[in-house]
Amino acid sequence: MQFENWRDEELIRQAIAEEISAAEARLEGLEKRVIQAIATRDLARSAWKRWIRSVLSPRASALRFAYVLGALLLFVGIGILIGRFSFAPKPLPALAQEGTVFALAAPGAHKVEIVGDFSAWKPIPLVDPDGDGVWTLILKLPPGRYEYAFLVDDRWVGQDPNADEYVRTMGDYTSVRYIGGGSS
């Protein structure tokens, strides 16, 4: 790009910079507003969607063959399972009545734990006996509000897709579950 006069360019650059810089104050805290908006935008659903989409994204094309194969194996597996349970598998809610289900999809993780105010933030391990990457645990909790997070290989995962809400504390997210019916 050749301009015949450097001063012209400088004047235009200044004109643009001035107008944008004058509005700088509006950008203060934008990151907080963005994070808040994302967190409140039905994250519970979108996180799952994101995970599933990322698995299926075009970027993963090298792995596509493996996924298709995996899907086929899943269908076979389900066929076997349905056969074994003779069309009446024990539904998850039946178990949930005995406690609260905490589940996290963490394929490839070596260790998944839950920490929360219900255990004074002492880790309780989740289990994945069949190695499908879905780690689960049922906790018996009395009615109330509980703050918790998962530790996936000791890494803080503060946003459980199944949480009722999230709070930010000490610079990171913590999940919240309300247990019990409540009365209004």
Binding site: L27, E31, I38, A39, A47, R50
Partner: peptide, 14 residues
């Protein structure tokens, strides 16, 4: 899903 990281992106590119 690390929103903290995204916040940093916002800071850099806002």
């Amino acid at each position: 899903g690390d929103l903290e990281a995204w916040g940093e992106i916002v800071v850099r590119y806002k």
